[in-house]
Simulated scan of single mutants.
Amino acid sequence: MVASVPALVKITEHNVEAACRLTVRPDQEKYSSPVAWSLAEAYAQPEIAWPRLIVEGDEIVGFLMGFFDIEWDRPDDRRSGLWRLNIAAEQQGRGYGRYAVDAVRAEARRRGHDRVYTTWESGEDGPEGFYLKLGFRPTGETSGGQIVAVRSAH
């Protein structure tokens, strides 16, 4: 018997309702936008947004949204990275978050980028430790009050 492995799938008319039902732990809600909100942003900015579901077998275990080639502070400063990450409350601690970060890194490499960025809101029970453990390092910048961090895409 072969164990299933996580996979990324596009959001379609067949899975969008289930995607919107995905929820994080209640203590994480202040640090994470609902999937429906993220999908609305992706719809409004399709040229940069890369929304995907993380599935294992037939089960949706998470949602990620990458961003690619956005203009940051100046026209010559274009960035890519992880915009949103929601891992289902009951699926956390099983490696799906790491899988999501690695998937965005791989897509960034495929598109010719050397670095990936993310942001997080500072807080005692926030995601900072998770991102630091995965190799992200604060740049000293902030965006919308959130810490901006970077790591290699390789």
Rank of each mutant, 00 (worst) to 15 (best):
E41I: 02
N15R: 01
R151E: 05
L22R: 10
R21Y: 01
V35L: 00
L22K: 07
P26M: 00
A3S: 12
V35D: 05
S80R: 00
K30L: 08
A3P: 12
C20T: 01
Q28G: 06
L82E: 01
A100G: 00
G112P: 04
E128T: 05
R84N: 14
D27M: 09
V116M: 00
P138M: 05
A149M: 08
Q146E: 15
S32D: 14
I147F: 02
E124Q: 12
L132V: 15
I147M: 03
H14M: 08
E90I: 13
V5H: 12
V2R: 15
V55R: 10
T139D: 00
G93W: 03
N86S: 14
K133R: 15
V55A: 09
G97Y: 00
A149T: 13
R25M: 13
D58G: 09
L8N: 01
R111M: 11
A3V: 11
E47V: 12
R115H: 03
D114G: 10
T139A: 02
R109S: 12
D102C: 10
G66Y: 00
E128H: 07
V101R: 01
L53K: 06
D69F: 07
L132T: 14
F67M: 11
T139C: 00
N86I: 07
L82F: 06
A88I: 03
T119C: 12
G97M: 01
P138Q: 06
W120L: 12
E107M: 15
S143L: 15
R115D: 02
A88L: 01
D77Y: 03
S4R: 14
Y43V: 10
G66E: 11
R110E: 11
D69K: 09
S33V: 02
G144F: 06
M65T: 03
A44K: 05
R25I: 05
A106Q: 13
V35I: 04
T118V: 09
E121R: 15
V148Q: 01
Y117N: 04
P75G: 05
E124K: 13
T142K: 07
Q92H: 02
